[in-house]
Computed example of a mutant assay.
Amino acid sequence: MKKIKLAVLAVALTASSFSWAQDGKAALVKQFVDLQRPGIEALARALVQQASDPIAQAGSGYLQTQVPAEKREAAAKAADAELKKYFDESFPLVRDKALAVAPTTLGPILEQNFTEEELKQLVAWISSPLAKKYQDMNPQMQTALTKKVVEDTRASIEPKIRALDASVAKALGAPTAGAAPAQSGNAPAKAPAKK
């Protein structure tokens, strides 16, 4: 009976040690992800910026070629205000989602690929061979986080992009896709421009 009690005690201690080790590793992963907050925010900023870049570029081209010189400054300021409004509304949404999903997206990658001791070294981020290993894993983590943030924010961001496109076009005095009545047949709406 005494041997059974000792065996049960040994199993309990082993399980307790394993649980403590996992908690220690999880705490290190959380700490490491927390330290990555500036990079995660930069990723969110880049995603929001990247989504509006085509609109900004198209607006700039239109501004230079279609808006009279005397109206360009005012139109550019109006378009910039719309772009800033979009960014100010969208960045917090994407940033908050990125920060929320980072632990569950990056955490498993870190836990699977780094030991507790390696995580301690990463958190300390001393010049070490681990810097190379982390850099090698970084593209996979960024890809995973980017995919998850885009998936989770698409429904919220796409309507904002469409609204931004329309508001920038309006600020520049450009026609919008819905502004011209649809023509019947296959002729494009801009056919009269072929004079």
Rank of each mutant, 00 (worst) to 15 (best):
L172Y: 07
L172F: 08
R162I: 03
D165T: 01
S167I: 01
R154Q: 14
G178W: 15
T153Y: 15
T176P: 05
A179P: 11
K160I: 09
E158N: 06
A155L: 06
A169S: 13
K148M: 14
R154C: 08
K148A: 15
I161W: 00
P159E: 10
L145E: 01
R162Q: 10
K160S: 13
K160V: 11
D152E: 15
V149Q: 11
G173F: 04
A155V: 14
K148S: 08
A174M: 09
A166Q: 12
V168P: 02
A169Q: 05
T176D: 09
R162C: 02
A163E: 15
T146M: 12
P159R: 10
L164H: 11
V150L: 14
A171D: 04
I157N: 03
T153D: 10
V149D: 14
K160F: 02
P159C: 14
R154Y: 07
V149L: 13
S156M: 12
P159G: 13
S167K: 05
S156R: 09
A169C: 04
V168G: 02
L172K: 05
D152V: 11
V168R: 07
A163H: 08
A179L: 14
V150D: 12
D152N: 11
S156H: 10
T146D: 04
S167V: 01
L145P: 01
K170Q: 12
L164A: 12
L145H: 00
I161K: 01
K170M: 08
A163T: 14
A155C: 06
I157M: 12
A166S: 15
I157S: 02
E158T: 03
V168I: 07
E158Q: 11
D165P: 00
E151L: 07
E151R: 07
P175L: 07
V149E: 11
L145V: 02
V150C: 09
R154M: 15
S167H: 03
A166N: 13
T153V: 13
S156E: 15
P175E: 08
K148P: 10
L172D: 04
P159L: 10
L145G: 00
A166V: 09
I161P: 00
T146G: 13
L172G: 10
A155Y: 04
L164Q: 11
P175T: 11
P159Q: 10
A169T: 02
T146A: 07
T176I: 09
D165M: 01
D152Y: 14
R162P: 02
A166M: 08
L164K: 13
A177S: 06
E151H: 05
G173M: 03
A166H: 03
R162G: 02
R154T: 12
T153F: 10
A169E: 01
K160P: 14
E158D: 06
D152R: 09
A155D: 11
E151G: 07
G178A: 15
T146P: 05
E151V: 12
P175S: 08
D165Q: 04
E151Q: 06
L164P: 12
A177K: 03
A177P: 01
